[in-house]
Structure formats: structure tokens, C-alpha cells
């Protein structure tokens, strides 16, 4: 009954990587929108916004990602939604990413000198334009490296979705391993694929960082 870990098994694992990529992409997209909102709330003049954003960040930074996945997964079930690992994993990871990106980007926004905001205000620019045209473009330059760093964390974090039954790279590895009993080969392959996904990102981050800093050197 034991299958041999051959070309076909290898391909099955490689193909499963698309779900890891899809989950990462959706979680990152959701997390970007949420993270921008959280970051803007964190630096807002409105106290209620600041308190909410701070609380949100504390909760997600202070609990394990696995618990966040469980809570969303089982929480959805309790509130009467059908159990759907796809949706649960996406929501949990997007919320998780919102909190972390929010905190990273808050730092980047605050790293833009206060005088920039003041100059924009003194010119008559209101909140939207002074953020959009003046502060955020400068914050982005600072944000590139830590953001891609977090994206790498997020891609590796999607492996936890396997525990709530979402069949991505890790879960597919487990399934193949159950059939082949070649854990070293199987998980070696899985790890190598994660590495191939993450490593180029780090390279891209470094290149973008130098490009941005050259264009906007002070």
C-alpha cells in the first residue's frame, strides 16, 4: 500500500503551492487595506480611533496566529456560518496582517518628519492630500523592507492553515507523507518550495529599497 515518493507525488506538492500563494496574496491584500486603516487610526488626532487601533494591534500581536485561526474558524461555525477553511483562513490571516502591517506602517508614517505635515498644512492642503501626496509617499520608501519582511512571515504563517483543514503546501505534504512514509523527502521538498517563494522576495525588497532611497535621498 505504501506509495513511492516519485515524480507524480513531487508534482502534487508543487501544484499545492498555488494555494499557499493564493492564500498569502489574498491575506496580504486584505491586510494592506486593513493595515493602512489601522496605521492611519493609530496616528489620528481622534482619541477613539487611536484607542481602537491600539487595542486591535495588542490583541493580534499578543495571541498566537494558530489561536486566531481557531477562533475565526470555530467562531464562524458558532455564528451559524458553514465551516469553510478557505474563508476562515483568509479572514484570520487578513486580520492578523492588518494588525502587524498597521503597526509597521504607523512607525513609517511617524518616521516622516513632522515638518512635512506642517508644510503641507501651511500650504492649505487638507488631511487627504497631505497624507496622499506628502506623507505616505515618503512613508512607503521606509516601509518597503519591513513590509516585504512581514510578507515572508505571512507566507510561512499560511502553513498553520493546514491545521484547520485548508489544503495548501504543508497540508498536501502531510497527505503525501501519509501515503509514502518518506517524511524527510516530502517535508524537505515542502521546505524547499517555501524557500523558493520567500527568498526572491527578500532580494526584491533589497533592490526596491536602494531604488527608493536613491530617488528620494535627502
Amino acid at each position: 500500500m505504501i506509495r513511492v515518493f516519485g515524480w507524480n507525488e513531487f508534482l502534487v506538492i508543487v501544484v499545492a503551492a498555488q494555494w499557499t500563494i493564493a492564500l498569502s496574496a489574498i491575506a496580504f491584500a486584505g491586510g494592506s487595506i486593513g493595515g493602512l486603516l489601522i496605521a492611519l487610526m493609530r496616528v489620528s488626532d481622534v482619541r477613539a480611533f487611536r484607542l481602537f487601533a491600539t487595542g486591535f494591534i495588542r490583541v493580534f500581536q499578543g495571541t498566537p496566529l494558530l489561536m486566531q485561526l481557531f477562533l475565526v474558524f470555530f467562531g464562524m461555525n458558532i455564528s451559524g456560518f458553514a465551516i469553510n477553511p478557505w474563508i476562515a483562513a483568509t479572514i484570520a490571516l487578513a486580520l492578523h496582517a492588518s494588525a502587524f502591517l498597521g503597526e509597521i506602517w504607523r512607525g513609517c508614517i511617524e518616521a516622516v518628519p513632522k515638518g512635512q505635515r506642517e508644510a503641507a498644512t501651511a500650504l492649505g492642503l487638507r488631511y487627504y492630500h497631505s497624507m496622499r501626496q506628502v506623507v505616505l509617499p515618503q512613508a512607503i520608501r521606509i516601509a518597503v523592507a519591513p513590509t516585504v519582511g512581514f510578507l515572508v512571515q505571512l507566507i510561512k504563517g499560511t502553513s498553520l492553515a493546514s491545521i484547520i483543514g485548508f489544503t495548501e503546501l504543508t497540508r498536501q505534504g502531510q497527505i503525501i507523507n501519509n501515503a509514502t512514509f518518506s517524511p524527510f523527502l516530502v517535508f524537505g521538498t515542502v521546505a524547499a518550495i517555501y524557500f523558493l517563494l520567500c527568498w526572491p522576495l527578500s532580494l526584491v525588497a533589497r533592490r526596491m529599497e536602494t531604488r527608493f532611497s536613491r530617488a528620494t535621498a535627502r
Partner: peptide
């Protein structure tokens, strides 16, 4: 009103 600052505060980007 226009304002000129000690640190110029030009937009570097």
C-alpha cells in the same frame, strides 16, 4: 498665508 520654516520642509520626493 504663506509660511517659510527654519528647516525648509520641502517635499523631498
Amino acid at each position: 498665508t504663506g509660511m517659510v520654516f527654519q528647516q525648509f520642509n520641502l517635499f523631498p520626493h
